[in-house]
């Protein structure tokens, strides 16, 4: 990976350069926390944020979006053209970059390309920023504490400077025009090495590192644990809303008041919703919280993994905060850690 060093004082110049031709989205302070939002000036950006309440996925897959417009009487499609806003998502942590890479696999990998997601992804520049984990972070357990690809620029914090990984021409051109870059010195390299050490040693050691998680999901599929966990689920969908990798959706038609025309829309959906796996006629393939919560964890920690060789969880820890009843992957890992521990020598 090509890299250069920039002085931190040049950051506002870089942001302003992006703002000339892009809408810039970045972490900003809202109330007691942080969110990703459109910024009006570089000063709003909070690059030292711990975690945002929700991920930047909403800019690639909006909570509700129009797929097409139609004439309901004729049952025909009408012309529908949407110009996607060229956008820079600035200050993205590795967990969220890895989450975008997983959304790419799900939505534009395989036989069918999702043209709506692809148009937005193609029009988006991602600028990553290194971070120090908080008490709910467990990205390192899934190898999501580093981003190998999926970003255009990545700013590694090395004190007064950033070591910048550059993987995209367009973004690099803007960077080079806006900032004075230098070659890394031995001092910079050592500072980078120390920064990665600090990050690695900062993870919460109470979150167990369990091997064979995917296989354990199969082996303990019938364990009473899932009944306990499922009973607590309120089906509020908060987990899926804040999850950077949840991509399931519903498709629905919305008519104009005269009923003559309308829009076919897609909206975020969640497999913890009671009717998610119900078929016409009323049969529900996942009728209770037990099956639904188990399926959500199973798809994250087994299903996606066996098909794509990576978990559909990046350990961002947002669901740990969002779930009001304490259902999250850490609890699953703790269950696996407890299981059989009293028999261990």
């Amino acid at each position: 990976m090509l890299y250069r060093v920039m002085d931190k004082r040049e950051l506002p110049a870089l942001v302003r350069a992006f703002m000339e031709s892009y809408e810039v989205v970045a972490p900003v302070k809202r109330g007691s926390g942080y969110i990703f939002d459109v910024i009006g000036s570089p000063e709003e950006i909070e690059l030292d944020y711990t975690q945002t309440a929700s991920s930047p996925k909403k800019y690639l897959m909006p909570p509700t979006e129009t797929l097409m417009k139609f004439d309901a009487n004729m049952n025909l499609v009408e012309d529908f053209i949407e110009q996607v806003t060229p956008r820079v998502i600035f200050g993205v942590h590795t967990c969220d970059i890895n989450a975008l890479n997983r959304l790419d696999v799900a939505l534009i990998g395989g036989k069918y390309v999702d043209p709506y997601y692809q148009a937005r992804r193609d029009a988006t520049i991602v600028v990553g920023i290194s971070c120090v984990p908080n008490e709910n972070c467990f990205c390192h357990l899934w190898g999501a504490d580093e981003a190998q690809f999926g970003y255009d620029l990545f700013l590694h914090d090395i004190g007064d400077k950033y070591l910048v990984s550059m993987s995209n021409v367009e973004a690099t051109n803007i960077l080079e025009a806006a900032c004075e870059l230098s070659e890394a010195t031995d001092e910079d390299r050592i500072a980078f090495r120390q920064a990665t050490r600090v990050r690695q040693s900062a993870f919460n050691k109470d979150i167990p590192d369990v091997q064979d998680v995917a296989m354990l999901m199969d082996v303990f599929h019938s364990d009473p644990f899932w009944e306990e966990l499922g009973k607590k689920c309120l089906s509020c969908s908060a987990c899926a809303s804040v999850c950077p990798t949840c991509f399931c959706f519903d498709i629905r038609d919305v008519l104009t008041p005269d009923g003559k025309t309308g829009e076919r829309q897609r909206t975020w959906d969640a497999c913890t919703n009671p009717g998610f796996a119900m078929v016409t006629g009323g049969h529900n393939f996942r009728p209770t919280g037990r099956e639904r919560v188990r399926h959500r964890m199973y798809h994250k920690l087994n299903g996606f993994f066996v098909n794509h060789d990576r978990m559909l969880c990046v350990g961002c820890g947002r669901c740990v905060t969002a779930c009001k009843t304490g259902i999250n992957p850490i609890e699953v890992l703790r269950f696996f850690k407890r299981k059989g521990a009293d028999h261990a020598k």
Binding site: A106, L107, Y112, I251, D269, V279, H295, H299
Partner: peptide
Amino acid sequence: ERHMKCGMGKCGHCQIGHQ
């Protein structure tokens, strides 16, 4: 039989286990 909403392996409604 499952609820195959999008038909393209995206929307998630028809998932059975890992498929």
